[in-house]
Every structure is written in structure tokens, then in C-alpha cells.
């Protein structure tokens, strides 16, 4: 999967010209790691190494499916997510690979 298309350019392009630091930080697509607890969203893309992507996919986190955050553990620990009838634990690091629509 390519890395393009994962960033939107926000606002008028012209404003950003001449300020490369702003170009570095356009509005990123929200990832599963950033989805607020209790909210549901649709999976738009999966990133990362094929090994990990395959694992994530075969546990049911597939493109087009709805995923909800049930709870987060403290101190930056794993996130409990729900896809259909399956509940999963995923670390924030891997949750970042799941891009949401």
C-alpha cells in the first residue's frame, strides 16, 4: 500500500507556499489510535509492514468495516476495539496503522 493519499491539504494551497513547515503538518487522516472512546468509524485503509497488516486484517479489521473504541487502558496501554461481534486488544502503535474514513 502506498503512502500517498494519506494526507489532506487543508485550506488554500497558496497560503501554504513559502511556509514548508506548515506543509509538513497538514490535517492528517484520523487513525484508530486517535478515535475518541465510545465512537465508531469506518476503516479506510491499513498501513504498515505486510506481516502486521495481515495479522490486523485476519483479526477482522478490514477496509470498509465499522470499528468502535470500547475503552482504553491507562498509561498508554492497549485499546479495546469492537468490530462486529469481535472484541480485540490493539496497542496504540498498531492502531495508528488503521486509517479511518
Amino acid at each position: 500500500m502506498s503512502n500517498e493519499n494519506h494526507y489532506y491539504l487543508s485550506g488554500d494551497r497558496d497560503i501554504l507556499i513559502g511556509s514548508p513547515s506548515k506543509l509538513e503538518k497538514p490535517n492528517p487522516v484520523m487513525t484508530l489510535a486517535e478515535l475518541p472512546t465510545g465512537r465508531t468509524a469506518t476503516i479506510a485503509a491499513l498501513e504498515g509492514e505486510p506481516e502486521i497488516r495481515t495479522r490486523i486484517q485476519s483479526l477482522g479489521l478490514r477496509v470498509g468495516r465499522d470499528v468502535a473504541i470500547i475503552r482504553r487502558s491507562r498509561f498508554g496501554g492497549p485499546i479495546q476495539v469492537r468490530i462486529g461481534t469481535t472484541d480485540l486488544l490493539i496497542r496504540p502503535q498498531q492502531a495508528q496503522m488503521v486509517k479511518l474514513a
Binding site: R55, P78, L88, L89
Partner: peptide, 8 residues
């Protein structure tokens, strides 16, 4: 290996 566990 990433922690990806089912919570049955």
C-alpha cells in the same frame, strides 16, 4: 510482535 489479542 505486536500485541493483537482477542478479548473473548
Amino acid at each position: 510482535e505486536p500485541l493483537l489479542l482477542e478479548l473473548p
